[in-house]
Write a protein that binds this DNA or RNA. Structure first.
Lengths: 169, 169
DNA sequence: CAATATTTGATATGATGGATAACAATTATC
DNA sequence: GATAATTGTTATCCATCATATCAAATATTG
């Protein structure tokens, strides 16, 4: 869409009228943009990711990294291809990502004995510990704030619709 | 998060049991990932943008370009900084974007007479025509399909919540 | 079994979006 | 009139995403 982080401007300064049709000094009219679901979707997503980063900042985890750790925890014994594809990450791009996590000793590649081509990706103890702390931060800071804003019922409805779009649209 | 376009894998092939704990051959467990709002948000956003691109493909407009045209139409007489910042685009990045639209004769930069630093960005006639066609495509193909999936009431509720998150979170 | 095809992780590379610093021209402020 | 701020622009960097290709290992097939 567009919809970058903020790109602040309009610090509220005095304007003079421009003689042509525009209402100067005022905020621009979003118009039909505010009815475009994709636009609000993108802006909301950026906000949520920003807040996620803030909440998990002490652990230095991005949303993507967090999702990998979560997946590793729930799915032991899987190889890179399986993990990556489940998250919609292309195999080539997953290599550097794993390198990052492995270099921090959050997970480890282990050669599979069944298929010596593949690397089983395992959570390390440190990875489990970091994941546990991250989960707590996400739950108590990030998701809790969302619950506060929307209310539990609305939050559930929102999640349900988003999942439906992701799966069925 | 992660959440790329598709990165298809798992083309459904025969597996053999791995002797360790994992249930092979089955899809991976998303686990708590399916409760993470940010995750669903990102996946839904990618789906929506993909569909938008498909629907507007005949006009070769990205969501970002469409949002610019919409904004220009509703806000004549504004300069680059105002347009860009409203959409959350950083001024430097908006230059190339405008270049693209201007080279296709969808809009034009006009030196302001009041402030000769700034460029007023105007929709051209062709820009207006393309925008009109784009609006129709978006309404009849893209948004209509969403309405079909969610129902009008749910769609409105979804939009409302996303806007709230974008504005208040 | 041998030949061929496929899969896995990896590398290189390109395209795109987003962010910052710096600059010339212009305007605002003091 | 000197200094500061703003506008559009360029250059540059970083991250994400996508494709082609490769060697090693495995699967398939004749």
């Amino acid at each position: 869409m567009t919809v970058s982080r903020t790109a602040t401007a309009e610090s509220g300064k005095a304007r003079k009228e421009p003689a042509d049709g525009a209402i100067e000094g005022s905020a621009l009219q979003l118009g039909e943009l505010s009815e475009l679901l994709g636009y609000s979707l993108k802006r909301a997503q950026l906000r949520i990711f920003d807040d996620f980063l803030r909440c998990v900042a002490p652990l230095q985890l991005t949303p993507a990294q967090f999702s990998v750790l979560l997946l590793l925890d729930k799915n032991p014994g899987r190889n890179q291809t399986e993990i990556a594809s489940t998250l919609g990450i292309l195999r080539p791009n997953f290599v550097a990502m794993l390198d990052g996590l492995e270099s921090r000793d959050l997970c480890a590649r282990v050669r599979s004995t069944n298929d010596r081509r593949s690397h089983i990706v395992e959570l390390t103890d440190k990875g489990r510990a970091v994941l546990a702390r991250a989960k707590k931060l996400v739950a108590t800071k990030h998701e809790a704030r969302l619950n506060e804003l929307l209310g539990p019922a609305n939050r559930a409805a929102l999640l349900s619709m988003l999942t439906k779009i992701a799966q069925e649209f």
